[in-house]
Design a protein around this nucleic acid. Sequence first.
DNA 1: TGCAAATATATATTAAAATGCATATACATT
DNA 2: AATGTATATGCATTTTAATATATATTTGCA
Lengths: 121, 121
Amino acid sequence: MSKTILLIAKNIKRLREVKKLSQKEICAGSGVPQGQYSRIENGKVEPSVSTLEKLAKVFEVSIAEFFKSSDVNDVLNLPLLEKIKMIDKLGKEEKQALFKMIDIAIANKRLKDNLSELLTS
Amino acid sequence: MSKTILLIAKNIKRLREVKKLSQKEICAGSGVPQGQYSRIENGKVEPSVSTLEKLAKVFEVSIAEFFKSSDVNDVLNLPLLEKIKMIDKLGKEEKQALFKMIDIAIANKRLKDNLSELLTS
DNA sequence: TGCAAATATATATTAAAATGCATATACATT
DNA sequence: AATGTATATGCATTTTAATATATATTTGCA
């Protein structure tokens, strides 16, 4: 079972519960048959993009929402570039604190490099 | 033609160009046949989630990236990019320490976001 | 221009999701 | 317990992406 379809399933179910709507209502609004919708919420199928599109509409979110994880472990596995993008969205305080540490680490590295350069020359 | 599959197409193509890789290379890395990949980049098909999963892996992004309208995406500031490159050159210890802090900050943010989402519903 | 690599397209086959429909199971309320 | 509502599952059919393979077309460069 793909991790992703379980993630989608969980997110969709959560969104429905937040809205306090029945499957029947979601299906009326989206055009997705109830049977199929149930299978999606339970991770029994891999919903197609067009199905996700219909659902995103009734939930009033972007499809990207379906793929977001709130799991810390998943954050850990994000490639560096993704992490940096996340940093950009942090609050001012956290962002600045992080930048300072990064700067210190980098400066530290430079110092070390310069020293060893001096020693080997 | 669905707006979404054109968006996916554009994002995937852009990501490949950023990495300066050929379709052949992407396909070797992902296992997606070149013919199919071409159709995806041109919005001729609706890629399945598992296909997107494979591609996200070689591009080193989360699947959610494929669904973001690119303008939101490209506001990453340059000084930040420089820092990323520097981080990459740090020693193992420093790098890991930094990552840990970044992870904590991000996870913290997500937690906050989820909580406020629950509260506003 | 002409060659070679990269990309797009064609076709037939396979696999899996979508659908309609029926029905089973779970869940709650009286 | 009985009734109604919500959710899950079963099944046959249709639709469409995935695949393998081959080939056409475009593009870049000597």
